[in-house]
Write a protein that binds this DNA or RNA. Structure first.
Length: 259
DNA sequence: ATGACAATCAGAGATTGA
């Protein structure tokens, strides 16, 4: 089973890009971030026509996440638990009913800039809530994965120019420490389970010719529970998507599971 | 140190992103 994550940077802006990618990559499940659309305006027919069940958690202008699945989705929940006052649409969960049922958590973790300040406080608090949610899911022993735009550069090797990010919310020690705490619960980062070394990125800024200079960062991740990690066959970054017409600033990352 | 680029909403330019 192929599961992909993709920060699309606006579903309306990607109205030609997305079907082209889906028809080429053929994921069974696609976890989307930054749909920048309310649920009523999401072009669900475009995906339903391709055989996907569509579940969205949208918001006007900003944020918004979705799960598309060719397999049935059950028990869909929207929003990250732990803060009743959080208005931002950044989290969705659903169980994908394949050979092995897998709980898929789609997330768009807050950017957190500028630092210090309320936006960084929100990011760190959000990460604490995510850690709590992972702890709860681990007790169930049901296979699950958390994937999406983490807005965290885990290590220096995950940036072409790590020195440019030392004061940034994506790479500050507190951000990296929270990400490690998530891993240290017993989750496996799928890409690093398969590939070592520098030069692997999932985001290139639109500005200053970042793509042409390969000035990228790796911030889109798959974290797998132990039962889910046992099923991991492959994890790849579809870097070439960034060079096609009207790209998002992120590219898809996908895993193949024996499920 | 800043802005560069793109998207959104609105219908210009501010806001947000990373």
């Amino acid at each position: 089973m192929k599961i992909a994550t993709f920060n699309i940077n606006g579903v309306k802006a990607r109205i030609d890009t997305l079907p082209r990618w889906l028809d080429t990559a053929q994921p069974d499940v696609a976890v989307l971030q930054e749909i920048k659309s309310v649920d009523e305006n999401f072009p669900r027919e475009m995906f339903e026509d391709r055989g996907y069940q569509v579940e969205t958690h949208g918001q006007k202008s900003f944020n918004g996440v979705a799960i598309l699945s060719k397999l049935p989705l059950e028990d869909v929940t929207r929003g990250l638990p732990g803060d009743e006052n959080d208005e931002q649409a950044r989290y969705i969960e659903a169980t994908v009913m394949g050979e092995t049922a897998i709980r898929v958590c789609g997330l768009y973790l807050p950017n957190g800039n500028p630092t210090p300040g309320p936006k960084y406080d929100y990011k760190l608090a959000w990460m604490e809530r995510l850690i709590s949610r992972a702890q709860d899911l681990l007790t169930s022993e049901e296979p699950f994965l958390m994937t999406g735009d983490y807005n965290v550069i885990p290590q220096d090797e995950d940036a072409a120019r790590p020195e440019a990010w030392t004061q940034d919310a994506l790479a500050l020690p507190q951000s990296r420490a929270a990400f490690r705490r998530l891993l240290n619960l017993g989750l496996t980062e799928a890409f690093r389970a398969r590939t070592n070394g520098p030069g692997h990125y999932s985001f290139w800024d639109y500005q200053a010719g970042a793509w042409d200079r390969n000035d990228g960062i790796r911030i889109d991740h798959f974290l797998l529970s132990p039962q889910c990690a046992d099923l991991l066959l492959d994890c790849q970054i579809d870097q070439q998507e960034r060079g096609l017409t009207k790209p998002s600033d992120h590219v898809p990352v996908w895993i193949d599971l024996a499920a």
